[in-house]
Design a protein around this nucleic acid. Sequence first.
RNA 1: GCGGGCGUAGCUCAAUGGUAGAGCGUCAGCCUUCCAAGCUGAAUGUUGUCGGUUCGAGUCCGAUCGCCCGCUCCA
Length: 538
Amino acid sequence: MSDATPQPKSIDNADKSMDDIMSLCKRRGFIYQASEIYGGINGFWDYGPLGAQLKKNLRDAWWEDVIMMGCSGATGPDGEPVEIVPLDTCIIQNPKVWEASGHIGGFNDPMVDCRETKSRYRADHVQVMSQASGEGQMYAFIGGDDASEAAARKKLEKYARTELTDDQIAVTPLVELDLDVYGRVVGPDAKEAGTLTAPRAFNLMFPTVVGATGDVEDDKAYLRPETAQGIFIHFKNVVDTTRVKLPFGIANVGKSFRNEVTPRNFTFRSREFEQMECEFFCHADDAKDWYQFWRDSRMAWWESIGLAGANLRLREHDTDELAHYAKDGAGTADVEYKYPFTAPDYGELEGIAHRADFDLKQHQEHSKVKLEYFDTTRGELAPNGQPEGERYLPHCIEPAAGLDRGVLALICEAYTPDPDRPSKVFMRFHPRIAPIKAAVFPLVAKGGMPEVALELHRELRQRFGKYGLIEYDAKQSVGKRYARMDEAGCPFCFTIDGETVEDGPNKDTVTVRDRDTAEQTRMPISQVADFLSQKLGL
RNA sequence: GCGGGCGUAGCUCAAUGGUAGAGCGUCAGCCUUCCAAGCUGAAUGUUGUCGGUUCGAGUCCGAUCGCCCGCUCCA
């Protein structure tokens, strides 16, 4: 990682226009609307040349740091290096996987709409108050909301024309009422009865059909809504075949799909998106320490690639917003970014969840396959001095990052308006993730300069081309070329000028122009590659 | 899914119901020795799509698709 490039101060994203950012993304080929020439398709976005490379750089950085370097070479809370192994699992799995994980059964929350007030409620949150007899009008309210409940009681008493004791009142969950009673129910915020719709289920999983016969019911399968389950169901395989020992992690990068109720906010809530997930397994006694470790490590990692300052924060979930799998865990935290469209609020970038043994337990029950780990380092000491060992289901800490959300955050963070420069805006990508690593220009397209520039371009491309684009540009004026590179976020431009090719004190030197400061310095052409290597952190 | 706003060239936007335009960008040429300089020229549009009203629709009406905002939701 480069420590040579000073990280300029982060600009508050509340001052950036998302429309302008989206416009630049299109103009410079970062992000296009999917299927654009056919009118687009709601919730899908494609990456243009610069976006594709930017996304790859972020994915590679995660893969290298989290997996290959074991959390950037950190020492875990156990004092040992962190061990992570990669995995690459299918988007389509046996549908039973999603029954076990809970994605098919309990998590498509049914919703009810109120035709009168246009409000929408989670059906399982709505309670219905009636007279104990169950006769007459009934009044819905939001369970747990005292004001809403008091209002319902007041309305019911007015309807009954008398004060009612608790015994004279019945409260029933809406979902347990017969549909033919709905006509007598007054919505929580409504005046008339019968305005609530029947509860409607939202299944967020994409159904698909496996097999050429296309039998929708018999051969129904799903595109995965998260990569995590592919990891859990291979936990035993990885333990049995790779000599890993607890604690260790398994990581998977790949596409996931969710039929979001409302795709919104550019690529933030896409229906097809890419996740970078790690399931880190450890003994239950150590889970809390590992949870803290991953929380802090992941926050530091995002800072290391250019997200920093007030636009980034780490937030612990309140207990009442914990997901189904995290109820028994030590907690859930989100790394959140202040996107321009959420500002002054923040939106999720990565979640770090203590899932306890929820998933392994579920898969063990549903598959009838023992997924326990035999830990030879634990248990009572046997007479021979060796631990007897302990058999248990490991607990799991899950740092799960959204790759597309990461790209979006990097773009928003990099976007830097600057009225003083010709481009009026530049993209201040961290050199490590910048899609264009360097550009080489002849100051003017004559006098032997293009030849020297092309030679330098060849050299740099050969050495750095695998990390990103190395551009050559001789068109128009050098000012335009600098401006173009500013908008694309290229950190360094090398220019061959008259002094490079003429005899004199500066023969064989070039100027390097720094994107962030627009300052130029002169260096021998022979040192350019090493300079770039150091700046890119290679 | 509901409500509101919007949809014209790559981008930003004009065009009273009457011939679809400008700026910027892009490309070509000239010029140019360090920040979108200048000159000349060029390409790019079924005005998101479909239908209707009209002698005539970018403009009015309807539907549809997409984007933005609010509500709602978010494993």
